[in-house]
Computed example of a mutant assay.
Amino acid sequence: MSVAKKDYKRITTKSLIEMKANGEKISMLTAYDYTMAKIVDSSGVDVILVGDSASNVMAGHETTLPITLDQMIYHASSVVRAAERALVVVDLPFGSYQSDPREALRSSIRIMKESGGHAVKLEGGKEIKESIKKILNAGIPVMGHLGLTPQSIYKFGTYTVRAKEEAEAEKLIEDAKMLEKVGCFALVLEKIPSSLAKKVAETISIPVIGIGAGSGVDGQVLVLHDMIGMTHEFSPRFLRRYMNLYEDMTKAIGQYVDDVKSVDFPNANEQY
């Protein structure tokens, strides 16, 4: 059943908590540059995630690990200049927060000051608790991320569904409660059983955003390039492609090449 939406002129962390309380689902998409972020924002998306997935879709790396803090700030600043309504959340990249809470704070301050982002996102539970507390104590909003955590891919060794076993599921629930208790404003759950994700969303008061976590959570996030079909090799079960932009763009560019070769472009009306 659909819920009447409140008209938010600007989405804040408080807005998301209100949306959960009112039963309104939260929409979230990634963006990495000004032009795409402008389209996403004007389309009514609530949260724009400047994801470290830029390492994959923008730079062509196999994992999210290579992207640097400087590169994340560059992408985030481009997105912030485009966003007029959406809350902009920026991933802290691998190596910028895990080992030292003071380094985590320095990284977060750089993102907030140099990009203008509205919040940061970190992967992990109790093992990064002190880093999260340090960031929150400085007044910087934090979004958590549990389940499949791509920055730990070499630890897991696979991108398969997480928390299917009871022990890992119990740890995930405890980590979610901890993230809520220390002050995170929201939580992403990636690629876990839908029944577990629903249980987490019902257990904690902060919004739970799912990706491959079923419909029982408070909102959904997808990588923009996957959702609009710019990428075509990646086809997990949770991905719904709303366009096939790869095919459309390939066809259009091919036609451009043909028109240039045949001197059909530019025609008489396309010259000065």
Rank of each mutant, 00 (worst) to 15 (best):
residue 252 A to F: 14
residue 187 L to H: 06
residue 197 A to H: 07
residue 191 K to Y: 10
residue 262 S to D: 05
residue 119 A to D: 01
residue 11 I to T: 15
residue 231 T to I: 10
residue 248 D to R: 15
residue 143 M to F: 07
residue 77 S to V: 04
residue 256 Y to D: 14
residue 129 K to W: 00
residue 42 S to N: 09
residue 192 I to H: 10
residue 55 S to K: 05
residue 98 Q to H: 13
residue 167 A to W: 01
residue 107 S to T: 04
residue 69 L to T: 05
residue 90 V to E: 00
residue 228 I to S: 05
residue 32 Y to D: 07
residue 159 Y to I: 07
residue 106 R to T: 04
residue 165 E to V: 09
residue 151 Q to F: 08
residue 75 H to A: 06
residue 144 G to S: 08
residue 18 E to N: 15
residue 243 M to N: 10
residue 214 G to C: 11
residue 132 I to Y: 02
residue 218 D to S: 15
residue 22 N to L: 15
residue 207 P to W: 01
residue 41 D to G: 12
residue 229 G to S: 07
residue 24 E to R: 14
residue 246 Y to L: 03
residue 68 T to C: 04
residue 219 G to C: 05
residue 124 G to M: 08
residue 231 T to G: 05
residue 36 M to W: 10
residue 271 Q to S: 14
residue 171 K to F: 02
residue 51 G to I: 09
residue 213 A to F: 00
residue 99 S to N: 07
residue 178 M to T: 14
residue 64 T to Y: 00
residue 103 E to I: 05
residue 61 H to L: 03
residue 6 K to N: 13
residue 200 V to L: 04
residue 231 T to F: 00
residue 178 M to H: 10
residue 57 V to M: 07
residue 91 D to T: 08
residue 111 I to M: 06
residue 225 H to V: 03
residue 2 S to V: 13
residue 11 I to M: 15
residue 102 R to Q: 11
residue 82 A to D: 12
residue 122 L to H: 08
residue 99 S to D: 09
residue 139 G to Y: 00
residue 237 R to Y: 02
residue 165 E to P: 01
residue 41 D to A: 12
residue 189 L to Q: 07
residue 27 S to D: 03
residue 195 S to E: 15
residue 101 P to C: 05
residue 197 A to M: 07
residue 104 A to Q: 04
residue 4 A to W: 00
residue 89 V to W: 02
residue 245 L to W: 13
residue 139 G to L: 03
residue 30 T to K: 08
residue 208 V to L: 06
residue 126 K to Q: 13
residue 126 K to G: 09
residue 119 A to M: 06
residue 110 R to H: 01
residue 69 L to W: 01
residue 108 S to Q: 02
residue 42 S to Q: 11
residue 173 I to S: 04
residue 51 G to E: 03
residue 173 I to R: 12
residue 185 F to R: 13
residue 170 E to D: 07
residue 240 R to T: 12
residue 71 Q to P: 00
residue 123 E to G: 10
residue 22 N to A: 15
residue 266 P to R: 03
residue 249 M to N: 15
residue 244 N to A: 11
residue 156 F to V: 08
residue 179 L to G: 07
residue 187 L to Q: 10
residue 47 V to Y: 05
residue 111 I to H: 01
residue 243 M to R: 12
residue 234 F to Y: 14
residue 150 P to M: 09
residue 235 S to E: 08
residue 43 S to Q: 11
residue 92 L to H: 04
residue 164 K to S: 07
residue 193 P to T: 09
residue 165 E to Q: 12
residue 224 L to Q: 13
residue 84 E to K: 15
residue 133 K to W: 00
residue 272 Y to L: 14
residue 213 A to K: 01
residue 89 V to E: 09
residue 56 N to E: 11
residue 256 Y to A: 11
residue 160 T to M: 10
residue 66 P to A: 02
residue 113 K to F: 00
residue 257 V to Q: 09
residue 128 I to V: 15
residue 271 Q to F: 06
residue 149 T to Y: 01
residue 142 V to L: 06
residue 195 S to R: 14
residue 251 K to E: 15
residue 264 D to V: 09
residue 63 T to A: 05
residue 257 V to C: 08
residue 93 P to A: 10
residue 155 K to H: 11
residue 234 F to S: 06
residue 186 A to N: 10
residue 202 E to T: 03
residue 76 A to E: 03
residue 44 G to T: 09
residue 81 R to Q: 14
residue 129 K to G: 03
residue 17 I to Y: 09
residue 170 E to R: 11
residue 112 M to F: 02
residue 105 L to M: 03
residue 113 K to C: 01
residue 158 T to A: 08
residue 83 A to Q: 13
residue 172 L to R: 03
residue 7 D to T: 11
